[in-house]
Design a protein around this nucleic acid. Structure first.
Lengths: 243, 243
DNA sequence: ACAAAAGTGTTGCCAATACACCCATGC
DNA sequence: GCATGGGTGTATTGGCAACACTTTTGT
């Protein structure tokens, strides 16, 4: 296994880098909203530790040997996300969350994890279960199904922080558009805000917010209507992606 | 140098962890405000790469061998901060910023750095230069002295992100109190906001913000006054730390 | 007295909220 | 027609910016 020694040890001269290193993983909190319910993707662990427990999808950052550097951290997250969801890279919003490095957070040894969170549009969510990766991945209702204490490692803490981040950023960024289909009605967008924030919004006032976004050019009217069984609703789309 | 091979290679059984690992460092963007000027602490690099360049203070996360786990990530940042500034731990505000993991960011090999930012009160800033650590650390004016292109590694990018973070959080958090002495006048606190945001604030309106903070119990009047050569100003202190 | 800075009052603007109300549509 | 949910109008509140104004002090 000499070939498996660290890149630092393979270097000709001893240097600052020539010390024990932690393992580094990326873990991803993948959210979606289906049926007005916030869901998070969890995978069942097939190996100890925490065998049988549910955990956040993730994996080790690939680091090359010798002169090879391996993949960018962001690329590791993108790769894991694609592997675990089966969704093409670029179709899912991904953002770095926080890095968790408590010395004892993994019983196997020193593992530092860089956590990301991802937002999957509801129209893509059904394709995730039964995705390419064999590992049994499943959407869990954050409010009614996830048992924080039953999650592996410190993943409950990571999930908490991801929730907090999304709840905070939805008010002053455009991340809500990552949780609706490409075109959406005001009610659909409002439902996203309501589910994330856990409170009701006045439909009339929410509509005004939306109108401001139209005048600001953030969203535009889209062709078609939503047939709801009652009066159909206008649909809009986010202006940025499609220009 | 066989003893210096990575902990992963020394592990008896092959496992998920038994792969090449990146080196992990913490880098800290240490800010202070002196003479109404935002300053950042930089250290001169004594070794290649980037020898002679200025860089953010930082260092490797200590990871034990075998069963030893080493220090928490947060502890590594706290330790580096204390080493580089000479200030006692706990006297400086410290918060994780972002993790930078581009594969080619360090010419020596694969190094992932977890960046933090720190806020040093101006009354402590003079003790930092000529601190305990031998490395020549110096305060640089962010606006007028720092040459982003001259910084080592991707430290210009890290500095940028730290600036953005502080500028964003000063509006809705209490971090401004980490950049004034324990007691402060309204003008002093206002100067902090003005320097960070790079714009002027109306003294009258700023006073009102301050009054709201008094009624909300965030700050309290402190004994003493600021002698400015003109009319002395009342001084206040942040309520949280001292109760 | 005068300059400079602390501190107050007043006004207008903009968002967010609450709530009454109109409108279009499928049944 | 009528219930349902989409969509509009209006009043109120609170924060923030602008700016004229008063107060307090050292020189």
């Amino acid at each position: 296994m000499a070939t498996k020694r660290s890149a630092a040890a393979a270097r000709p001269r001893s240097s600052e880098l020539d010390y024990p290193r932690p393992a580094v993983t990326v873990d991803i909190v993948v959210f979606t909203i289906v049926d007005a319910d916030l869901k998070v993707l969890l995978v069942e662990r097939g190996l100890p530790p925490f065998e049988g427990c549910w955990a956040l999808p993730g994996g080790f950052v690939r680091v090359g040997e010798g002169g090879e550097r391996g993949e960018d951290l962001e690329a590791a997250a993108t790769r894991e996300l694609a592997e675990e969801t089966g969704l093409p890279a670029g179709s899912v919003y991904l953002e770095q969350l926080y890095t968790f490095g408590a010395a004892e957070r993994d019983p196997r040894g020193r593992v530092i994890t860089v956590a990301y969170y991802a937002l999957v549009r509801p129209d893509l969510a059904p394709f995730v279960e039964g995705g390419s990766d064999a590992s049994a991945a499943r959407w869990w209702s954050v409010a009614s199904e996830v048992q924080p204490s039953a999650l592996a490692f410190d993943h409950a803490l990571i999930l908490d922080m991801a929730l907090e981040r999304v709840r905070g950023k939805i008010d002053y960024t455009n991340i809500a558009f990552e949780l609706v289909p490409p075109t959406f009605s005001t009610a659909e967008l409002r439902a996203v805000h309501e589910v994330v924030k856990g409170r009701a919004y006045d439909p009339a006032n929410f509509r005004r917010r939306l109108r401001r976004m139209i005048t600001d050019g953030v969203i535009v009217e889209a062709p078609g209507k939503r047939i709801t069984g009652r009066r159909p609703a206008k649909v809009y789309r986010f202006a940025r992606p499609q220009g």
